[in-house]
Write a protein that binds this DNA or RNA. Structure first.
Lengths: 219, 219
DNA sequence: GTCTATAGAAGGATAGAC
DNA sequence: GTCTATCCTTCTATAGAC
C-alpha cells in the first residue's frame, strides 16, 4: 500500500523562479484574429468535442471561410494544441499568484482548490475542459510539450499536499490524494453552475472541509 | 449555500424490488457474435474514442468485413447505446447485491465505493469508461433511455449518502458529495493500475477514510 | 488576412449473393 | 451471419487570386 515515493520529501518549488519562467512564455493575444479564433475553438471543442467540430464549423462561427483557418494554423491539431497551451500557462500564473498571497498551509490548499474550480468553471472553463477531456485527441509529439507545462502545475499541488500530509492536515498518499481531487474538481464542470446558489468559494470550502483532518475554524 | 432539496428526506429504494426489476432486463449474450462485437467495441471506443473508431476498425478487430456490422446493428450509434446499456445494467445488479450483503451504513458506503471502483477498473472497465466519457456522442433520444437506468443506479447512492448525512457519518449536501465522489472515482481509470501495489479494496478504504467524519476502526 | 475552388482521402451505410 | 462491391457524403488541406 505504501508507495516507494512516499518516503521522499517533496518540496514546493520556488514561487519567484516559477513566476519569472511563466511570465516569459508567450501566448496569443486574445484581441487578435488568431486569438478570437482560439476562443471560438475552445467553445466549440467543449460543446461538440474536437472530432465533431469541423474546420468549417469553426470558420463560420468566426465569420470567415474554412480555407482561411489555415493561414493561422498549419492544421487542425495545432489549434487544439494552442488552446491547451495558452490555457495551462494562464492558469498556472494565477495559481502562482494565489499561493504567494496565502499565509498558511491550509490557505494554500484552499487557494489551489479555489483556483482549479475557478479555472474549470470560470472564464477559462471551456478551454480547461478541452485540456482535460480532449487530451487523447492531441498527437503524441504535441502532448509532450504540454506535459512539461502540466508538470510545473502539478508540482505546485504536490508540494503543498505533501507538506500538508507531513503536518497532519491531510491523511494518505499525496499522489493518490491529488488524483482523487483532480477527478472531483474537473468533474464539477458537468454539474456545477455558478447561478445555483453555491459560489465557487463556498464549493471550495466544502471540498476542503471534506478532505482535511483537523479543520481549523475560519472567520 | 443550503439547497432547497436538503430538507427532503431521501430514502434508499427497496433492494428486493429493484433486484427483480433489473433481473428482468435483457442484455446481449457475451458469447454470441453480437456479444463479442460489443466487447471489442467497448475496447476500441475506450482506447481511441467513439469518433475515431471506424466501423472498419471494429470489423477488422473481430475478423469480419465492415458491411457485416450492419446485420447486428442498424447504425454505429446503436453499438454505443448497447455498450452503455448492458454495462449499466450489469453493474447496477452488482451494486444491489453488494448493498444487500452489507450490515452497517458504513459498510454500504464502502460497498458503493468499492463496486464503482471495480466497475471502472475491473472487467467492465472499458465499457464503463465509454459510458462516462463518450456520453455526449450518444444521440439525445438514446440518452434518455440510458438515463432512466442511471437514475436507478444514482438513487442507490443518494439513498445511502443521505442516510449517512443524517447519521453524522458524512458532512455536507448529499448531491454535492455524490458528484465529487463521481468525479474522484471515475477519474481513477486514468491513473490507477491494479498491479501498482494498491488493491481496489485498499483504494476504496482510502477514499472512505478521506470523506467520512468519525471513522470507525475496521478489523 | 480572407476569398474561391477543389483535390484527395476516409467514413457510414446499402444491396444482393452466398 | 458474413461477403463483395460500391454509393454518397463529409472532411482536411492546398493553391492561387484579391
Amino acid at each position: 500500500m505504501e508507495s516507494p515515493m512516499s518516503s521522499k520529501v517533496i518540496e514546493l518549488p520556488s514561487l519567484e523562479a516559477l513566476g519569472t519562467r511563466l511570465a516569459a512564455m508567450d501566448t496569443v493575444d486574445p484581441a487578435s484574429a488568431k486569438g478570437r479564433l482560439l476562443q471560438t475553438a475552445a467553445h466549440l471543442f467543449h460543446v461538440r468535442g474536437f472530432d465533431r467540430t469541423t474546420v468549417r464549423d469553426l470558420a463560420s462561427a468566426v465569420g470567415i471561410q474554412s480555407g482561411s483557418i489555415f493561414h493561422h494554423f498549419k492544421n487542425k491539431d495545432e489549434i487544439l494544441e494552442a488552446v491547451m497551451h495558452d490555457t495551462i500557462v494562464f492558469n498556472t500564473r494565477l495559481v502562482i499568484d494565489a499561493l504567494r498571497a496565502s499565509a498558511s498551509l491550509q490557505d494554500q490548499l484552499l487557494a489551489l482548490i479555489r483556483c482549479e474550480l475557478e479555472s474549470i468553471n470560470g472564464v477559462t472553463g471551456e478551454a480547461m475542459n478541452v485540456l482535460v477531456f480532449e487530451w487523447r485527441n492531441l498527437p503524441e509529439d504535441k502532448q509532450s510539450r504540454i506535459l512539461k507545462l502540466r508538470d510545473i502545475y502539478e508540482s505546485l499541488w504536490l508540494g503543498v499536499i505533501s507538506e500538508a500530509c507531513r503536518e497532519g492536515l491531510l491523511r494518505g498518499e499525496p499522489f493518490v490524494i491529488r488524483r482523487l481531487l483532480t477527478g472531483a474538481l474537473s468533474w464539477t464542470s458537468t454539474w456545477y453552475r455558478k447561478d445555483g446558489g453555491l459560489s465557487v468559494a463556498q464549493l471550495a470550502e466544502q471540498v476542503l472541509q471534506m478532505v482535511i483532518c483537523q479543520p481549523v475554524p475560519r472567520a
